[in-house]
Every structure is written in C-alpha cells, then in structure tokens.
Design a protein around this nucleic acid. Structure first.
Length: 405
RNA sequence: GCAGAGGUGGCGGAGCGGUCAAACGCAUCGGACUGUAAAUCCGACUCCUUCGGGAUACACUGGUUCAAAUCCAGUCCUCUGCACCA
C-alpha cells in the first residue's frame, strides 16, 4: 500500500491524546511526511482477561498509522505477562501459562473493535513475544542484561519507593523492561506506542535499540485517563471499563465519569478530531449542561466499541432507568411461600441483605419501600398474600414479590 | 542459619492489661441534595435477639489474671538486616 501523508491525520497523530513524543515531535513529523513505511508497534499485556477502554485511545492512534499505510504490529505480551510489570506496591504474583492463554483469547477480537485488523490493503500484524523470548538462552540473557546498569533500573520511581520503604526488589523484576526492550529489537521497530505508565520500559527499548541496532526508536506515550481521585484507570486499579462490557454498562460507566473528564474523554477515547474536541470544550465553557455532553461522549464511545444501534439502545436504557426512574421495565420477581413474613427475614430470604442484622439496619435507615411507601419497622409483618402486587425497594435494588401458596 | 520487626475488621493502619465490636483513613452500603454521577452533609458497616440484652472476634494453641488484641510460652506465617575476611 502506498504511504499517504494526509495532513489532518498526521496532525492528529502528533497531538491527540499524546503525552509526549521522544526524542521530539519534529522528528516524528518529518518521518511521517517522508513517505517511507514506518513500523510501529504496541504491546498488550494479557494479565487480565480483557482490554479496557484506556486501550481504545492507543488503538485509535494505531488505526491512524494503519490508515496512512504504515505497518502496525500488535504484540501480545504472553511471555512478559507471566512475570508482570513491577508494581508500586509489591511484587506481582506470576501468572501461569494457562492463565495467560485464557486471557489472550479474546484480545484480538477486542482490538478489532477499533483497529481494522483484517483490512485488505493494510492488515495489522499480530505477534506473541514468547516467539522470541522463550528461545533466549542464558548466554543471550547475559548479553542483554550487560547493556543495562542496576542504577538505570533503580531510577524507576517504584523501585525508589520500595527502597525507601524497605520492601524487597527481586532480580527478575529488572527483567521486565529488558524483555520489552528486546521486543523492540526483534521487531526492528521505528516507533513504539504505549501508555505514559510504560515510559520507562519503552525508554529501555530505546536504549537497547541504539546500542544493538544503532537506531533511534521513537517513543509515543499516550495520556492516561485518570479518575477523579487521580488514580489511573486500568486493570490494576479495578475501576476500568472493559471492552467486553455490555453496551449498557459502557454507557452507564461513562455517565458515571466526573464532569472534569468529559473533554479529556473525547480527546483520548474517541475518533474525534482535535477541532471537534475544542468545540466540546467551548460548549462546556459556554455553560451548557455537562450532562448533555457526557451523554454524547457515552454515545460516541459506545457506538465505536459496540455499534451505533447498540449505543442507541444503551442510551434509551439509561434514560428510562436512571433519568426517568422508570424501573419497572425489568423488575426481577421472587416467589415467597407463606402468607406472612417478617420484613427483615424477607430481605435475607431474597438476598437483599446477608444477615438479619444487616436487614434490620437497612430498614431502620429508611432504605426500604413497599409499594413506594417507606417502612421503617424491622419487625413489620408483611402479609404477602393480601398485598399483591407487591413491589419491594431496598436502596437501589428493587424486586417484585409474588405469593406462592 | 543468626539477629531484629511484625501478624488487628474488605484494605491501610491505631491500640499494647479493664471504659475495645476495637481510633483514624479508604472502600462499601443507606439517607439528604442533584443532571445519572461526582462533590458535600448525615448515618451505618460481626452475628443473634422476645429489642432489655446476648454470643463470638484482634494468626493459631495453651497459660497468667477477677479481667487479655494488649502479659507469658509454644506453633505457623511475613518482612528486614547480617553472612566471606572473624
């Protein structure tokens, strides 16, 4: 495929959702405008069984490269995942080969939701890094490790932190960046893309490339979408939106974003151009209700990951369930045998509370409504037979109680 | 192996003989407020209860004591340091 130098796409590559470009934006710009084929790759760690929405950001960028005709490779870090990237808190427990394989299965499909992997003109290449990492001998490893100093490794702030806290740092944890660096060498890549959290590892690759290949690998780090409390969104933190979530969930979780994330969300998580992103910012600044914008964001993301029609459904669902509180759409029903039951026992019976004590607390706190009337006596005796239909609400949970003779 | 530190609720982390079902923070849940949220405020957060109370709980097993998360002994586990030249 002939290389395109579409100005708009190049501009988007250089700016949208980009945290930094090393060694410089200009070098990348020149490369993109030169018309030569560029090899770019991104690694995906199958340490969880799904990708999350943060990955979407990078996939958009890869797709831009692909559209221009460049060679895009997705490296599934099946080998590296078994060790795990060192973490701030502690050593990760290694994953078994089986766990990794299980996690990997769905990756390609999920990547394909955004990246046009099977495009006829310019398909995406998939590689597993066990292909080359597994074959390394101890001699090879010595060779590689001799290119890095302990001081270099210890620069990583998470290691610094652990030194301060007197927590252990194991030798194999140094191997993660080295293995990733070696990925770059094997692929002979021109560019590596990754989240800003991967900066250190990607720089290790830059270092190794320059020594072994005398080549200046370009590193692009993407902005990470941070949650309101400043922590990143991702697998490790458990607050992620999974790519395989249902459209309703995706839509709903985006609506749960803090308002501050709206514009960033458009920039990082969607195909929108920077001009469009600016317009969203302007609308927000001019005092438009953030909710409208957030709904647009949720709709856009949901339709990019799922489909437009599913996004429409998700939106309707959200509107009816949360905004209009018409919850009777799909109220689950439970059957209760016996004509009468004490209220706190009922909550336990239908699993709305795990113990009678908890049920009692909920009732006393005013969480319980029977047919929309608050009941605050825990020992209230409910005659199920005579109060049909019976809609029970406990906090956000709701269900219909049926009398079963 | 030797020397130290330590194991407390979902997590982090106080408490170091009684007033401890265990401070404080986070998470969670409920209420109020809203545009779904977030933020904020208030409340709850072992179980059972005839609503007066009661029963289990601070790694485990024993012991000391009127009384133990708190002291003692043993067991298990975790972490840190030391290790050659001696």
């Amino acid at each position: 495929m002939k290389i395109k130098t579409d100005k708009e796409i190049i501009e988007r590559i250089l700016t949208k959702g980009v945290e930094q470009i090393l060694p410089s934006k200009e070098i990348l710009k020149n490369l993109l405008e030169s018309g030569r084929t560029i090899k770019i790759y991104q690694g995906f760690d199958p340490t969880a069984d799904t990708l999350h929405i943060g990955h979407a950001a990078h996939l958009h960028k890869l797709e831009d490269f692909r559209k221009l005709g460049h060679q895009v490779t997705c490296v599934i870090g099946d080998f590296t995942a078994r060790i795990g990237d060192p973490d701030k808190k502690s050593v990760r427990k290694p994953l078994t080969k089986e766990e990794v394989e299980k996690n990997m299965q769905s990756f390609k499909g999920q990547i394909g939701k955004i990246l046009d992997v099977d495009n006829k003109e310019n398909p995406v290449i998939f590689r597993y890094n066990s292909e080359w990492l597994e074959k390394l001998t101890f001699t090879d490893i010595l060779e590689l490790t001799s290119k890095f100093s302990v001081q270099q490794m210890l620069k990583r702030d998470m290691f610094q932190k652990r030194i301060k806290e007197n927590r252990p740092i194991y030798i194999h944890e140094f191997m993660y960046p080295i293995m990733q660096a070696y990925d770059s060498v094997v692929l002979d890549t021109d560019i590596q893309l990754g989240g800003n959290d991967q900066l250190f590892n990607m720089l290790a690759g830059r270092h190794l490339m320059s020594i072994l290949k005398n080549k200046e690998k370009i590193v692009i780090t993407g902005k990470l979408l941070t949650t309101s409390d400043g922590s990143k969104m991702g697998k490790t933190e458990g607050n992620m939106i999974r790519m395989d979530d249902t459209p309703e969930d995706i839509y709903g979780k985006i609506m749960a974003f803090n308002d501050d994330l709206i514009v960033e969300g458009f920039e990082i998580l969607t195909f929108a151009t920077m001009d469009e992103v600016k317009k969203y910012q302007e609308r927000l600044d001019s005092g438009e209700n953030p909710m409208n914008l957030k709904k647009e964001l949720a709709f856009k993301i949901t339709s990019e990951i799922a489909s437009e029609s599913e996004a429409k459904k998700a939106q309707k669902h959200f509107e009816s369930v949360f905004q209009k509180r018409k919850q009777d759409v799909d109220v689950p029903t439970k059957e209760i045998t016996g004509e009468e039951i004490v209220l706190n026992n009922l909550l336990v019976e239908i699993n709305f509370a795990t113990s009678k004590s908890e049920a009692k607390r909920l009732i006393e706190q005013g969480a319980v409504k029977i047919n929309n009337k608050k009941v605050s006596q825990y020992n209230h005796i409910l005659n199920i037979k005579d109060t049909q239909p019976l809609i029970l609400k406990v906090g956000k949970k709701i269900c219909k109680i049926l009398y079963k003779p």
